[in-house]
């Protein structure tokens, strides 16, 4: 699969024109994210003009508008956090597995986290949003390991389709379990309904602070991996001769991706396709260098998630559509596009 995207040696491509292009792309990425954040604070069941928002931020806004903004900003902040986590995790997974279809949602990680949270809520008495983080994490890791174990067992050819299928199988079984438990226990259903469908609404800053350490830890592992991922893209042998250890890079990358997806899922519920779609867009914009890919994923991921959230607020006004539904709409076409470009897997 990776033969289509041969990485440039990390020193190449640093001509002046290339640098200028990257800087402008970086600025554009920051601008898009800023716009998405502004839109996320402005739009709701009623639109707040940008001027009013700026007044509130400056500390002298109308008290009513202030309270509106205060109720909206945790959503924006959580969206940024979850978007960064999902997109970076997707980029890592696609880089490691050299698999343009890798996504925490498709590989069962989201389902694992959800099943774990539902179990904890139903049978172990977990209640608060912050507490769920600790349950989502082991579930996500277990599911990730299981999918890789099934999908990679005896694999000779990278096992692209196998991973996706193993993820689909695990997700189906876990989804059935989640449904069975939540539908049988109305109390669990009520408290976890929104969590399970993936929504940014109705969460508070407590969740953000609980998830933040995991997200930061995941990112701290991910960013230094970028040069290693670049050499990994040349193939294991070339990577070894460049001084990288493929096994270590893969293990660290997978660990980081799993922790990041678990953090995102714990924060906002299972949201599919952000981790799948964003890396494709990023590759099209900045090319194959993973140092740039990771940074841009961290910009475009939250932008996509926040915009999807805004769209979800607007299409059913004054009600809301969960962001997970919107990202599926936006992301599935990206998946189909990737399938069209798949090379002879049979």
């Amino acid at each position: 699969m990776a033969t289509t995207t041969v990485a440039r040696p990390s020193g190449a491509g640093t001509s002046r024109a290339g640098t200028a292009r990257r800087v402008s792309a970086l600025l554009a990425g920051v601008a898009v994210l800023a716009l998405a954040m502004a839109a996320s604070v402005m739009f709701g069941s009623r639109t707040t003009p940008l001027g009013d928002v700026l007044d509130v931020l400056a500390g002298h806004g109308d008290p009513y508008v202030t309270s509106v903004i205060e109720s909206r900003y945790p959503r924006t902040v959580l969206g940024v956090l979850a978007g960064v986590c999902l997109a970076v995790a997707g980029t890592l997974m696609q880089g490691i597995s050299r698999n343009p279809l890798a996504d925490p949602g498709m590989l069962g990680i989201n389902a694992g986290a959800s099943a774990s949270v539902v179990t904890a809520t139903a049978f172990l008495g977990a209640t608060s949003g912050a507490e769920t983080v600790w349950w989502a994490l082991p579930g996500a890791i277990l599911a990730g390991v299981a999918v890789y174990a099934i999908g990679a067992a005896g694999s000779r050819s990278g096992g692209l389709v196998r991973l996706v299928l193993a993820g689909a199988v695990l997700s189906a079984v876990l989804y059935a379990y989640i449904q069975a438990v939540t539908l049988s226990l109305p109390k669990v259903f009520d408290s976890y309904r929104y969590w399970v469908v993936g929504a940014l609404a109705g969460r508070d800053m407590e969740v953000f602070w609980a998830v933040l350490p995991f997200a930061v830890a995941g990112l701290l592992v991910a960013l230094p991996l970028a040069p290693g991922l670049n050499s990994l893209a040349l193939g294991d042998e070339s990577a070894s001769s460049l001084g990288a250890n493929p096994a270590v890079i893969r293990a660290a990358g997978l660990l980081s991706a799993t922790v990041l997806s678990a953090a995102a899922t714990a924060a906002v519920g299972p949201i599919a396709f952000v981790g799948l779609a964003v890396p494709h867009v990023v590759r099209a914009v900045v090319g194959v260098d993973f140092r740039l890919q990771l940074v841009f994923s961290a910009l475009l991921g939250p932008a996509l998630l926040l915009l999807a959230d805004v769209v979800g607020r607007l299409v059913l006004r004054p009600q809301e559509l969960m962001v997970g539904v919107v990202t599926a709409f936006l992301g599935a076409p990206a998946l189909l596009y990737a399938v069209r470009r798949m090379k002879g897997t049979s």
Binding site: L101, M106, L160, V161, V164, L165, A168, A272, F273, G324, V325, V326, A328, F329, G331, A332, P333, L335, L336, V339, M342, T345, S346
Partner: peptide, 16 residues
């Protein structure tokens, strides 16, 4: 291979 992956994508879209 392609059929299954495309199908999973279409299924996700339809479910959404």
């Amino acid at each position: 291979g392609r059929l299954v992956v495309a199908g999973i994508g279409v299924a996700a879209l339809a479910t959404a």
